[in-house]
Write a protein that binds this DNA or RNA. Sequence first.
DNA 1: TCAAAAAATGCAACCGATTGCATCAACCAG
DNA 2: CTGGTTGATGCAATCGGTTGCATTTTTTGA
Lengths: 332, 332
Amino acid sequence: MSGLAKLSGVDISTVSRALNDSPLVNDKTKAQILQLAHETGYAINARARNLRKQSSQTLGIVIPVYPGSHQTLSDPFFLEMIGAVSQAAAKHDYDLIINLPNSPSEISERRLLVSGKADGLIVIGQAGRTERLNSLGDAANRVVVWGGMIDAADYTLVGSDNFEGGRLAGQHLGDIGRRRILFLGDIDLPEVKLRYEGLVSALQGQGAEPLLVPCSFDGHEAYRKILELCDGKTAFDAIFAASDVLGIAAIHAVQASGRRVPEDVAIVGYDNIGQADMISPGLTTIDQNIALGGEIMVKALIDKIAGKPVKATLTPTRLVIRGSTAGTALPR
Amino acid sequence: MSGLAKLSGVDISTVSRALNDSPLVNDKTKAQILQLAHETGYAINARARNLRKQSSQTLGIVIPVYPGSHQTLSDPFFLEMIGAVSQAAAKHDYDLIINLPNSPSEISERRLLVSGKADGLIVIGQAGRTERLNSLGDAANRVVVWGGMIDAADYTLVGSDNFEGGRLAGQHLGDIGRRRILFLGDIDLPEVKLRYEGLVSALQGQGAEPLLVPCSFDGHEAYRKILELCDGKTAFDAIFAASDVLGIAAIHAVQASGRRVPEDVAIVGYDNIGQADMISPGLTTIDQNIALGGEIMVKALIDKIAGKPVKATLTPTRLVIRGSTAGTALPR
DNA sequence: TCAAAAAATGCAACCGATTGCATCAACCAG
DNA sequence: CTGGTTGATGCAATCGGTTGCATTTTTTGA
């Protein structure tokens, strides 16, 4: 910048204003400076600017994946979420930094905010982190969390309507005549619990009741558990899985045991990840509209940073019917 | 920091040294300052530190996805790459910022480096960007690119051995008796071209020659093209697709046309994305070891930033046989 | 034509850390 | 007791922008 100042013969303060398109600067001067900047390939030093302006035009996304957690970063849901948030952030002229906590106890969230590396934080999933997130205190007004709506949260929540999603799945399975329905998932997680409750509520209307099969978000675990159940004497004609990864594993397990999907066992997943329609049969699922979710979170976070009040938001939640319940596989 | 200085009664320079564990500071003083820092939840201001140290402990990853490019960010390959790089960066105590260029012509790479937002850059794929990357000039010594090995590159390349991958695929298809093999992909991209050449070389030994089916990385396009070919009069008994997404689409297309995989048409993909074994039949593919690739790139980039010489590196490339060529589908 | 208002530019403090150099105290050897 | 080391700390410049205020230049209106 001082280089540009010398070249154009004005003070660096004028250069600064010109580059920021300040109305204080004469149009001719401004044009000349911009021209010079362009020619010399000058780019404002973000480090200095960030320090002075006390902001960094950067958002952070925290993915709760650590050695020992059952979910891995390669879970397509996380990856799609990263993609969605990243595109939304870019659209709003923010950079996005990814943070993967090394351990469940590390307080990297606070550190990211306090150190000023990020102006705000998007946290994916609140499982077992409610307290920790609440303890962010002051910093909490620069945090948006993706997760199920719970009352105990001080932070802003964005997420799909998990209860409604569960209800839709239950109703659909009822509609196609299924009565013995397994729920595959870990209801200790708030999001999953809501999906389960939605399912229960839908089935009540039909006089049925689901059977709970506890399972983490690990596809291999789901495969094993469903295979065991198939080989056992529990009778069931449908599975509602807490995620598409689990649902896809369930399809495989059911097929491996010699039964047909959907004729013998209908299967519904949750998330509508890109792979849900790349398998045979396609996986019927609950769409969370991840792309929209990312956009909503980014916008909400930017509003919060600007001090505007922001309230929790639900993304549209809808049922996507494919071969795993419908009998016909749709091509992509 | 000035707060800590007041609290502990020493100069901020001493506080700074203490927090950085400098040997210049008396151990007792140091302990006391660290204690205070812990109690008050103090975190070093990254913005100021970055400015002063002329570095930001941050790497950037550039994904060449923009409106109009056929590949989308939701391509699992990109997502897995982001995950791999992100974990590797975290391991080396670097933050990672994601950059999605808004247009093919935008020079966001240079900007990221020159502005100091990132100390170094990892670029995924060099398709049509060779010139642009070479034009980075000085900045190129802080760039590592994932892509096929080509001679014209000034920058450091890391990638799987695309030629060998193609050769492995060709050999395998030959071994199982296939002679009429389609290659599905866009050989204008350097990586894809090498895969094709590897395939050709393997088939030469067997007296066969592949048929080229030009196709972008878009799964839907692949589906349409393969379906057309199936309905036409071209005879073929195998497909080697330039990516798993294309391979999976090909499986669907072939099945939709009433033929069996692998009995009528054997299919091999490329990448070994997580979903390759979540479909039926599982997709035989060439594993690029994305996780290792991410780690190698991060290490190479950090070395380059430190001024060490770094040379191009190939990641191990191997054939993973699954149901789409083997006749038996493996459970996950 | 000249004072007042408006527009454009310059000056200098500031953001919060890091670090070379100066200073000061404690300790040692002669 | 004194000069010389060593260890510990403080001082102040610095990184490269941004911005409130002062100053200069230009424009306006009577």
